[in-house]
């Protein structure tokens, strides 16, 4: 990493409006222009300080563009795999989004919101890519929104852990701690995928999940080592989430085929590292791995718990009221 990234325009163009004296709301710091010619107000619609190009970061829109150009066209298997990863992230984002404005501290409103936003970004990339491989022959690619808003419960491929209710803060942290350990290992390995798009999405995602992992591990330590109540709640939260751990590491014919081809990561191959890394934090926190029976799972085949229906009902209600509308 020696060459500076010259593509990233970080020029905060705050002063472009100062020459325009037609209204007062400029003064270099903010404006209420709307970037539409003829909309009046501040004149130069490009003067917003927030127009920073995303540089080389991979955005879902970039993938959508490749899909439209036909340069990103996953085989059905790959699309199915991307759908699983996308659904995991989407359902978790939906759950975490509920915390915003309800967290124990403003800092946590921001942190949980940020994690939700990251997960949603990953979901959008995976789903956009999946959609390109899931359309019927001769039909246009399915969009991220087709997949998010117009599939039914049994068509979702997320694992059960992601749809578990938020519970209290400790339960949310427990879920996040398990997820982050899993996703961090998964995305780290997936950066080596033979599929360039999956590798690129993973490369961006793993950097973000690194923070999620740090955040959740810190909270596991704090809650376990804080007060009697927080310790009790942390143990309870872990116990609630633990039955859904093994499903994350179940192999099936799809992942086996794709792993053989160097495209996917064989879930079971992550388990040893997962146990070790997660165990290190639990040991430091003085916690034990919960001794609870593992749930059967089935999310990858569309068999979900009762929770997902409610998650989807809320998420999809408006989009389904206006089918075909654009937003």
């Amino acid at each position: 990493m020696t060459a500076p990234n010259t593509n990233t325009n970080t020029n905060l163009n705050t002063n472009a409006n100062t020459a325009n004296t037609t209204d007062f709301a400029i003064e270099g710091h903010g404006d209420i222009s709307v970037g539409v010619t003829g909309a009046g107000a501040s004149g130069d619609g490009s003067a917003s300080a927030t127009r920073i190009t995303p540089g080389n970061a991979l955005r879902p829109e970039d993938i959508a563009l490749e899909v439209r150009r036909g340069t990103a066209k996953p085989a059905k298997d790959v699309a199915e795999y991307a759908l699983r990863l996308g659904d995991d992230a989407l359902i978790l984002a939906q759950r975490l989004g509920h915390w915003i404005s309800r967290a124990p501290e403003l800092e946590e409103d921001i942190a949980l919101g940020n994690i939700a936003l990251d997960q949603l970004g990953h979901a959008r990339s995976f789903l956009t890519y999946a959609g390109a491989g899931l359309a019927e022959e001769g039909q246009p690619a399915k969009t991220e929104d087709d997949l998010a808003y117009f599939r039914r419960e049994h068509e979702f491929r997320s694992a059960h852990l992601f749809e578990q209710p938020n519970g209290d803060f400790a339960a949310t942290i427990a879920r996040q701690f398990i997820v982050s350990n899993y996703q961090h290992l998964l995305y780290s390995r997936l950066t080596q995928s033979a599929d360039d798009t999956l590798a690129a999405i993973a490369a961006k995602a793993v950097k973000e999940v690194d923070y999620h992992l740090d955040h959740s591990a810190q909270w596991v330590l704090r809650l376990a080592g804080g007060t009697e109540e927080s310790r009790r709640r942390m143990i309870h939260g872990l116990t609630l989430m633990w039955p859904y751990v093994n499903e994350l590491f179940d192999d099936d014919s799809l992942t086996t085929r794709l792993a053989d081809a160097g495209v996917a990561v064989l879930p079971s191959s992550l388990k040893e590292d997962f146990d070790r890394l997660l165990g290190e934090v639990l040991t430091e926190a003085g916690l034990e791995t919960p001794n609870v029976p593992q749930s059967l799972g089935g999310g990858r085949d569309g068999r979900h718990s009762e929770h997902l229906g409610y998650v989807l009902a809320e998420m999809q209600v408006l989009a389904r009221e206006h089918p075909g509308a654009s937003w």
Binding site: P60, H98, R124, D145, Y149, M315, L318, A319, S326
Partner: peptide, 8 residues
């Protein structure tokens, strides 16, 4: 947030 009509 939970009901926004598109992911974007």
């Amino acid at each position: 947030i939970t009901r926004a009509p598109s992911l974007k």
